[in-house]
Design a protein around this nucleic acid. Structure first.
Lengths: 249, 249
DNA sequence: CGTCACCTTGAGGGCCATCAATACTCGTGG
DNA sequence: CCACGAGTATTGATGGCCCTCAAGGTGACG
């Protein structure tokens, strides 16, 4: 069930890669990029497939090229919490450790750009530029996880939903080097259940709060997945975050 | 209120440092250690003092030598969540960023071993060994934060308290390269209120659950801070975590 | 012995989980 | 064309966990 015909799929040259300037390879220059290009390979997963189980050995690390993956932890009685959402350009895997600490699931159809562990670790050692980039990305992940601690520990269900939609909008806008403003459209890449796993709620509560935000005019829906936010600022107010979140530049 | 007569205090040679082999400098060898020794300086804070406010400029990074510090985030209406607990050997600060993302507070009397930012970043660039060590510590922090996501998102108040005590016991045991087993004694380094901030609870709930664990014989108390766990395994069961958490070695 | 910080315990209510029933969507096959 | 079923989403009813408000209790220290 888990393995898949992975190695098929075109080999995209790094120069043409959609995540070239945001992934772990962002700071690479030509010679390093050539080394990466020579050893990388693509893997594809369908929505719902498991990429790795918690505790399982994984022999590669990877960048998400396309699609969405989730990292989750499950307790013995079945309660689960998603602890990370991997979007395009995010890095998957922990250098220096051969087993996955989390269960990794493809939440949509997913394309990974993989590197075998050993060569990649060797590259890390020999190429400070990549190591620095990875450190910086990891620090960003840590900040994101800590933002989520505030969300899980202190926010109401309504604020959680609003925060999540705002998070997606910001991330989306980040691709275009802009900030969300005014009217915004987003595709939810997750089911209600997966959102619940991520937000520390039940799927019923997610559904109810989305309905409530719709009733209150904070969002509108087309189908179940497509969300329109008429006024992004209003959404941020609902999220409980500081409205002026950071540098005005 | 915030500054303090900091630069007083003995200059402990790195060779005699209690956290020599667990801090960011763990992997350093003699020449690097000499460079660190030359530029480091100690700062002391009393319990309750603020080390840095969120958004504030901080010109140093540091290792915790002694005591406990907390990283916390606060919402506009006053709700706060502690997002990190810094114990001896933990690293404070983010290389590459001059402002603190969180409010840092001394939860007990605290001694930091500080390095001015710029020289430290230079050292990071020129010494891959230190950069690798910092990456590894950051990845550990990320795993710890994600463990806390599960705690905040899915655990009951009772499980949260049990998890927290178990966490302290493991951390304590780690200093002696052992694992907690059987009878264990711990000093809570936090007030009920600070524990509440860390666990996403109110101080009343923390108090009630500690009382309940005492009633049920999972722990006993001497004073408010000293906890004895008669059977560590029992505590782990109460925490909701897998009882066999990892490699048996 | 009074003050202050910290902690405990009680009473009541609100938010969200749980259980349950009903729609909606979409692909398959009669 | 409609029936069918599986996966997904919405909505309602009820209850429990934990927050809130409130009133002591404990211990350190001047």
């Amino acid at each position: 069930m888990k393995a898949q015909d992975s190695c098929q799929g075109l080999h995209v040259p790094c120069g043409d890669c959609p995540i070239r300037y945001r992934a772990v390879c962002a700071s690479c220059e030509a010679p390093e990029l050539d080394r990466l290009d020579a050893t990388k390979y693509y893997r594809r997963y369908e929505a719902g497939q498991v990429v790795a189980l918690a505790g399982e050995r994984v022999d590669f690390v990877a960048s998400v090229v396309q699609g969405v993956a989730g990292l989750s932890q499950t307790m013995e009685d079945g309660r689960t919490q998603m602890v990370g959402l991997l979007l395009p350009s995010d890095f998957l895997g922990r250098p220096g450790r051969a087993t996955s600490a989390y269960t990794v699931t493809a939440l949509s159809d997913l394309t990974l750009c993989c590197f075998r562990r050993m060569p990649f670790e060797e590259l890390l050692r020999s190429t400070p530029r990549i190591a620095t980039r990875l450190l910086d990305m990891t620090l960003d992940d840590l900040d994101a996880a800590r933002e989520w601690l505030l969300l899980l520990g202190r926010k109401s269900a309504r604020e959680k939903i609003a925060s999540f939609i705002a998070f997606l909008a910001r991330r989306e806008a980040g691709l275009h080097q802009t900030r969300p403003e005014g009217r915004v459209r987003i595709d939810l890449p997750l089911t209600r259940e997966t959102m619940a796993d991520y937000l520390g709620l039940t799927l019923e509560t997610v559904s109810r709060q989305i309905s409530a935000l719709k009733r209150d005019g904070v969002i509108t829906l087309e189908g179940n997945r497509r969300v329109t936010v008429p006024d992004f600022h209003r959404l941020v107010l609902e999220s409980g975050d500081d409205s002026d979140g950071g540098l005005p530049a």
